[in-house]
Nucleic acid binder design. Sequence first.
DNA 1: TTAATTTGAGTAATCGTTTTACCATAATAA
DNA 2: TTATTATGGTAAAACGATTACTCAAATTAA
Lengths: 329, 329
Amino acid sequence: MGNVSIKDIAKLTGVSTATVSRVINDSGRFSEETRQKVMDTINKLGYRSNVVAKSLRTRKTLSIGVIVPDITNEFFSKIVLGIESYCFPKGYSVYICNTGENEEKENLYIADLEAKGVDGLIYLSEVGGQQYQISKRRIPTVCIDREPLKKDIPVITSDNYNGGFIATEELIRCGCKNIVLLRDYRVLSTMEQRTQGYMYALSQYDIPVDVNMILKMPIDFNSAKECVEKLIASKTKFDGIFATTDWLAIGALSALKKHRIKVPQEVRLVGFDNTSITEFISPSITTIDQDKFKMGDTAANILLDMINDHSKKHENIIIPVELIKRETT
Amino acid sequence: MGNVSIKDIAKLTGVSTATVSRVINDSGRFSEETRQKVMDTINKLGYRSNVVAKSLRTRKTLSIGVIVPDITNEFFSKIVLGIESYCFPKGYSVYICNTGENEEKENLYIADLEAKGVDGLIYLSEVGGQQYQISKRRIPTVCIDREPLKKDIPVITSDNYNGGFIATEELIRCGCKNIVLLRDYRVLSTMEQRTQGYMYALSQYDIPVDVNMILKMPIDFNSAKECVEKLIASKTKFDGIFATTDWLAIGALSALKKHRIKVPQEVRLVGFDNTSITEFISPSITTIDQDKFKMGDTAANILLDMINDHSKKHENIIIPVELIKRETT
DNA sequence: TTAATTTGAGTAATCGTTTTACCATAATAA
DNA sequence: TTATTATGGTAAAACGATTACTCAAATTAA
């Protein structure tokens, strides 16, 4: 039976519930003597605080919600692990919500989490609904990796700009002169920044930017493969590929292999994310590592700060990236 | 302001809170007329039920906890996705807890979840602590993929036995006569069953079981690689490998490649799990697909059943597996 | 010694629901 | 007509904590 309440403790100890509560929370005043007595009965009865009742009174649930497109995606799951690892020791539990990029579902999730009284929210999704929902009740919120429309929400991102730069620079240093950029066709802040970094690197090394070398596509294996095959078929000259996502890189690699183009001898390749598969595929792929765990960890850190001090203003944070050199360069 | 309560609705409508509650929950008696009036004010005031208060009264939180070793592992994340997808439409939210296989941490999680009043628990972990903790308060519990000591807890597993069988059979059909088994050195029910399936297949095709062909090791890439390299060095004759885990298969493949042993011409290889990497690695790996999503989905289904009818007894469930034929056979 | 302050603890309201017990009134049955 | 039974609704007691007020006793200050 887990049904012993503060009342039972009070009665058995011979004090009021108020006193028991004070002892438990170490707030207010009580003597060391009563403290002992109360603690004794608590242990004797195996009392455990009822968090639900406490939440009702204090309006804090010690839980947060994480809105994520798909936990199955390694990038997201690592971020979630970072979040969860930070929250647990502080007593916060995390609800996981997979939206599948579905805006309607996302709104339902938000409503649900609000009703359940979460103390905070972390978004790993760009889906539009958030703006409306966020503003409804002012639950502390942090975004990861994506630009929210509401500018007063802190955002944690990787240093995508620098990532784009060092990826491109790596190719240039390996001697590449004609570098193709593979990117998402959509206008996403992360993509834009990686692209900007690419262009800046080219300019730094006096390589002219050729817009025909910037290939936009849906962000999956097959699209990348097809695009690169078309590129090969078109006889366009290129000796380097910067894929703004590892999956684009893997698709590209597949196309190159199929056409017996040697990597890295004829064409060099750099990806982005350091997805674990890039290490085991052959040839292993040079890529830009994003510190996903730290992104989650940092977001959680900031969120809990906001929860415990609503007035606090937080700035956006940019997490450094790192080049992981492997066989494709 | 999200602070409009049932009382406000009652006052404005000119009825009692009891009536409002009945209308909301569609329980007890009330006239269609009052129903309308109540609903109108609910909409007007944008009332949203306070789940915490409700939970306090009803002793149901509409949330469950999932204890998982590491959400970063694709196998687990897919199961979790299955669980979550099933729960959400039914109004249940899921807490995610990464134990990192740490028993102490696991116990802390359980205590935390109990205190927060979760209605149910799903275990994807075999760590020992669970037995003690589970028995403390009788929270409905389901295990996935692992054998709990308490026999009254329903377990969802893949058909590991059959998986081991068809994997081995595939190798035999491809002409293999000397089939190595790579497995975890620990005694885990899943491993045992896959091994049993392997042995049964051999016996069915009149191939003697050679215990020297059963290699036990820690279950990671490098261990597998080393073991297979040793095997090669020992000049042992073998023409097939059944790796009871995809990561073991990938490690084995790496060793084979290193020693320029042609796959599948000289040695054929089958893995287990259908981890996504097996599809993109070269040569792509034949493997046994476990329907992870369904495992999670099924577990959640059973758990919610148990929650809504504590008396209900549930049997263990075995999810079918499937051979995914690829380039290594 | 007396006044002021500190200390320890109790009382009771409150958080937002659900639910039980009860009470009118209206409809039906006898 | 009177007794019985539905019907629609109310009031109040939970659920298990927290906390603003009290207040007496003990301590300290004057």
